[in-house]
Computed example of a mutant assay.
Amino acid sequence: MGILDFLRAKPKNTASIARERLRIIVAQERSTRGGPDYLPLLRSELLEVIRKYVNIDPEAVQVNLESDTGHDVLELSVALPDDEKKS
Rank of each mutant, 00 (worst) to 15 (best):
K85H: 04
E20V: 07
R30C: 05
R33H: 12
S44M: 11
K10P: 06
D72Y: 10
K10S: 01
S16W: 12
S44T: 13
G2D: 06
L47M: 10
I24Q: 15
S77C: 04
E59G: 13
K12F: 08
Y38W: 15
I56F: 11
Y53K: 14
F6N: 04
V61T: 07
N13D: 15
T14Q: 15
E20Y: 06
Y38K: 00
T14V: 12
D83A: 00
V63M: 08
I24W: 08
I3G: 00
D37L: 10
E20F: 13
R23A: 14
V54D: 09
I3S: 11
G2A: 00
P36R: 06
I17K: 11
L4I: 03
S77H: 13
K86R: 13
N13K: 15
K12S: 12
L39W: 04
D82Q: 11
L46D: 07
D72T: 00
A27N: 06
K52L: 06
E48M: 06
A9L: 13
Q62G: 09
Y53L: 08
Q62A: 05
V26M: 04
P40C: 06
A60T: 01
L76S: 07
L74R: 05
T69C: 00
E66R: 14
R21W: 12
D5V: 05
V54T: 03
E59Y: 11
Y53E: 14
R23G: 13
K85E: 00
L7N: 08
L42I: 05
E29R: 05
Y53V: 05
R43M: 00
Y53I: 08
G2N: 15
Q62L: 09
V26R: 15
G34M: 03
M1K: 04
G35F: 04
E29L: 13
R23I: 07
L41E: 13
A15F: 10
E59I: 01
K86N: 06
T14M: 15
D72W: 06
I50Y: 01
Y38I: 02
N13Y: 10
I17F: 11
L7G: 04
E29A: 11
L7A: 06
N64M: 09
L41C: 00
E84I: 06
R43K: 15
G35Q: 12
P40D: 01
N13C: 09
D83T: 07
D82K: 14
S87A: 14
K52T: 03
K85P: 01
V73Y: 12
L47K: 03
D72S: 13
E48G: 07
G70P: 06
D83H: 05
V54G: 01
E75H: 14
E29F: 08
V61Q: 10
D82F: 03
Q62C: 01
L46V: 05
K52C: 02
R8H: 02
L80M: 02
A18K: 12
I25T: 08
E48S: 13
I56W: 02
S31H: 11
R33F: 14
I17H: 05
E75K: 12
G35P: 01
Q62R: 12
T69E: 14
E84D: 10
V63D: 02
L22V: 08
R30T: 07
S31W: 07
D68Y: 10
R23C: 00
E84M: 02
T69N: 13
E75Q: 03
I17M: 05
F6I: 08
K12T: 02
P36K: 10
A15E: 15
S31M: 11
Y53C: 02
D37I: 09
R43Y: 03
A79N: 11
